[in-house]
Simulated scan of single mutants.
Amino acid sequence: MNILQALFFPPEQPGGVSSMVPYIGERFRKIGWEMELFSIPKRIRNKGQEEIAFATFDWRAFAGHPVVDKYIQTLKDYVWWSRLRLKGKYDLIHAHHPVAALAMKQIYPDTPLLMTVHSSYERELILNGRIPADGPEHRFLTSLYGELEHRTDRLLTVSRSFAAYMGAYMKRPETVGVIPNGYDERRFKPISHENEVTQLVTVCRLVPAKGLDLLLKACAELRKRDRKFVLHIIGDGPIRPELEKLAQDLGIYDETIFYGYMLHPEEMMPFFDVFVLPSRAEAFGSVFAEAALCLLALVGTDVGGIAEQIENGSNGLLVPPEDPAALAEALDQLIIDPHYRYELARAAMNKAKKTYSLNRVINELKKIYVAMGPAEAPGPSQ
């Protein structure tokens, strides 16, 4: 079978999609399937001129708003780039971003299209203060779920909570399938170590949605309790200067290390003790599974896909969102009790190996690909 994996960001970008899809392609190619990865380079700007029309709503009613205009132009650019670069025919297209899915259906209207929705752009924009809730940009972006339902042959997402979120904007929400992300265990190499001072780490884009202001406030409380720790912040983003200033104002700058962007943070993660990320929303939270495979104890907020990965007190600790005091208490438990920390980390690793294995994803996708592809496609056991 010849399948096109249509990404938005180039596969070298960090994140759950990019860290998973190339490995999916590699596994399928080993069994004789053709698997091509496609994405749009960041340098492509304002090239597309082809008209865009949706079947379920008129996007022009939202025109004139910057987020909407940029989204439509990006879609036009993706169509332009795809027509320029894609010359082959495919048995199936698996898109991993709404722009990619809508562009591919415009170019290949007769090719079966599978779409996995990995995250919510509108929720990120709202939490990051870029658009208002229930405003025109928000309504435009949520209308796209109905358009995707209409235009694709099958929709998947990465967590039950996000399937429910999407379903509120669809006619048949029960048709959305759920396949959590999967990871190649060979990428993660836990290392036996004993840190005299507890090493906390977080890996994310530095934006308000990730709740790092709450993490810094929680760490300030730990310092008041005279707990010994170092906080490692891996990632970059627009609020890094604000976070650095907040760390200074809270008196924990000496305990905090800002690394900036790192392509392969999993190479460093095994040397830390606790992974913590108090996100305000998260469709899945790939980095929690990756941290678990590095044998780190997990602390996260009780939101979205994080709450589906962490069973509180069993394989990690969950805290309410927007609650730095509860976050400090959870971190305190893990700092003062290394044995408890290790037991949680071990349980998290075991669950990640079982639930988020790349083999599981491959097997589930293979069944879907065969069902959607041509009749002569190889069966799931091949």
Rank of each mutant, 00 (worst) to 15 (best):
I72Q: 09
G285S: 07
S286D: 09
Y356N: 10
D332F: 14
E185N: 14
R172W: 12
S143F: 01
K105D: 05
D337F: 08
A297S: 11
H138W: 11
F188M: 11
K228G: 04
V201F: 06
E311W: 06
E137R: 10
N46I: 03
K217G: 04
A53H: 09
P321T: 12
Y121A: 08
P321Y: 15
Y78R: 09
A61K: 04
L113C: 14
V287F: 03
L331D: 15
I191V: 13
R240M: 11
V319W: 08
A289S: 11
G129E: 07
Q309Y: 10
E196R: 08
L318V: 13
P132S: 09
L277Y: 15
I179K: 00
T198G: 08
L92V: 14
G25R: 02
A168P: 12
L298M: 12
I252N: 01
A63T: 15
G305W: 01
C294S: 07
V361Y: 00
K70G: 05
I107S: 04
N46D: 04
Q13V: 14
D213Q: 06
D273H: 09
G304H: 00
G316Q: 05
D273Q: 12
T256L: 10
P66G: 06
A168K: 06
K354I: 10
A281G: 03
A281N: 05
G373R: 14
S39R: 00
T202N: 04
L125I: 04
G300R: 08
K89S: 08
H138V: 13
K217I: 14
K47L: 06
V303L: 05
S357I: 15
A209K: 06
R360I: 05
P180F: 00
N46G: 07
G182D: 01
T74V: 12
I93S: 03
M349S: 14
E322D: 10
P338L: 02
G235S: 06
K351T: 08
A325W: 05
E149L: 11
E290Y: 12
A218C: 13
L222G: 13
R205F: 07
C294T: 03
G48C: 14
S279W: 04
L86D: 09
G300Y: 09
N315Q: 11
V197E: 09
K245W: 13
D254W: 05
F9A: 09
K47N: 08
Y340R: 12
A352W: 09
Y342M: 07
V230F: 03
I179L: 02
P378V: 12
D226V: 12
P321K: 10
E137Q: 03
H96N: 00
G260N: 01
V361S: 02
A330V: 15
L156P: 00
A352Y: 08
H94G: 01
V99E: 02
I24K: 00
H94D: 02
E308L: 06
V21S: 00
H96F: 01
N2D: 10
P338A: 09
H97T: 00
R139G: 10
A55P: 12
S19Y: 03
K189M: 03
F271V: 05
S159Q: 02
L37V: 00
E244Q: 09
R360S: 13
V203A: 11
G16Y: 01
W59Q: 06
L243N: 10
M104K: 02
G285F: 07
E36W: 07
R223S: 07
S357V: 08
L156R: 00
H118M: 00
T355V: 15
P22E: 01
W81H: 03
V178W: 04
V207C: 10
F54C: 05
V361M: 03
